[in-house]
Simulated scan of single mutants.
Amino acid sequence: MIEVKDLCKRYDGRTVLDGISACFAPGEVVALVGPSGSGKSTLLRCLNGLEPFDAGSIRVGDDVLAPGVQRARGAQVSNIRRRVGFVFQQWHLFAHRTALGNVIEAPRYVRGLDAKAATELGRALLEKVGLSHREGAYPSELSGGEQQRVAIARALAMEPEALLLDEPTSALDPERVGELVELLSRLREDGLTLVAVTHEMRFARELASRMLVLHGGRILEEGPPAQVLERPRHERTRAFLGLERAVRQEPAVEPEPGRTGVSAVFPAATARE
């Protein structure tokens, strides 16, 4: 269980998170959505100590993060990061390590596994994400989707209870998004808690059990994806999803003979004879 209570974060006097409270239960998949600058990625980074905050608290099991510089509580932050993995938007793979080398780095030097045990674990995780045939490839030889899968396998190598993903679909084409949904669905079935920042509503609808809509550093509303996406309660959510524009749009005008329907949207445009 991850519990966030009254979380506040400021950058240069600007409030980025404004008293956020939320819980993320074991095995739950939560999508954080909202306009750019609403505080989604900042909240995600606070959850495992990557960002300090100014007020409030974050509890992960028995460990609690408090306001201030997290380096002063190194052991506590390390405990939380072992339990809460993070997959960055740009993946940040080690360029001089193969796919397998990237995955076994943390098990060897953080968890203290010997080379044989770490290698066995790394190969099992690469197989889990569908990349057992690419264990010897370097990041420069991998596609964007493959690099992302290596990053997920690397995060799983610490055997976390929760996985945080920052914009996991941002560099993927539609086919790769579908593959990612399938992979994360399998991880969800294994009982892993997933919290993802995303602008991809299809991804949120297909994978998440709950959505949080952020705006101005606050949670505007939350609920099942179908409810939030189809029947949002807050006007700002409707605007973010484009529903207000759809309501205000005038009915389509049937084109006159010899003309296209372009003029119904752009009145100055007419069809060529």
Rank of each mutant, 00 (worst) to 15 (best):
E120S: 06
H199T: 08
M158R: 10
G34D: 00
A157E: 04
D166C: 12
G68A: 01
T260E: 07
T193V: 13
G56F: 01
E256Q: 15
D12K: 08
L164Q: 05
V4N: 01
G145H: 02
E254D: 14
G27M: 01
E222S: 15
R111F: 08
R73I: 04
L187W: 06
R154Y: 05
V4P: 00
G27I: 00
A252C: 12
D166H: 10
C8R: 13
M1Q: 06
T98N: 04
G68F: 02
H215I: 11
D173N: 10
R248S: 14
E273L: 14
F203D: 07
A246E: 15
E161V: 10
R202N: 13
S57R: 08
G242I: 13
R81N: 07
D18M: 00
Q249F: 12
F88H: 06
L243Y: 10
A155K: 07
E189G: 15
L180P: 05
S21R: 00
L172N: 07
R186Y: 12
R134N: 04
A196Q: 10
R188M: 09
R73E: 12
R233M: 13
P139T: 03
G144S: 03
Q227Y: 08
G144F: 04
A137F: 11
T169N: 08
A115D: 11
I104A: 03
P35T: 00
M211S: 09
L44D: 00
E141I: 03
I58C: 05
E28F: 00
K116Y: 11
G136Q: 13
Q148C: 09
L165S: 08
Q89C: 06
L229C: 10
L243E: 05
R238F: 11
